[in-house]
């Protein structure tokens, strides 16, 4: 993993302290601002159904950057990845099960 290093400060029993580089944090914040401009700019255009898709893709990208870098998940143990992933899966189930009802009501 480039962009971070272990600080010289170690606790007992091999306890490592992650120090993410400033360069990485500033890169992430620059990307977050750029993506915010992108989402406003694309929303100003009439892209039909693609407006929603573009807006969601940008928002998911921004959220992923925050989760992985600012929230340190990139350097966290697998169980944290599983917990983060579970929230996405459960929300997807909520949306999928609800919308399969609403979206299929006018079919037959």
């Amino acid at each position: 993993m480039s962009g971070h290093d272990h600080s010289p400060a170690h606790g007992h029993g091999g306890h490592h302290v992650h120090v993410v580089s400033l360069k990485m944090y500033f890169t992430v914040i620059a990307l977050l601002f750029a993506l915010t401009f992108l989402t406003v700019w694309t929303a100003s255009m009439d892209l039909g159904a693609y407006n929603t898709i573009v807006a969601l893709l940008i928002a998911i990208t921004k959220a992923t950057l925050v989760v992985l870098i600012f929230m340190h998940v990139l350097w966290s143990k697998k169980i944290v990845w599983i917990m983060v992933g579970s929230s996405v899966v459960w929300f997807a189930i909520l949306v999928a099960f609800t919308m399969q009802d609403y979206l299929s009501r006018n079919l037959g």
């Binding site: 989402t39 929303a43 807006a55 940008i58 928002a59």
Partner: peptide, 11 residues
């Protein structure tokens, strides 16, 4: 929230 609530009718 920002794109879902504020930008729906921005075009």
């Amino acid at each position: 929230l920002f794109p879902m609530i504020y930008l729906l009718g921005y075009h």
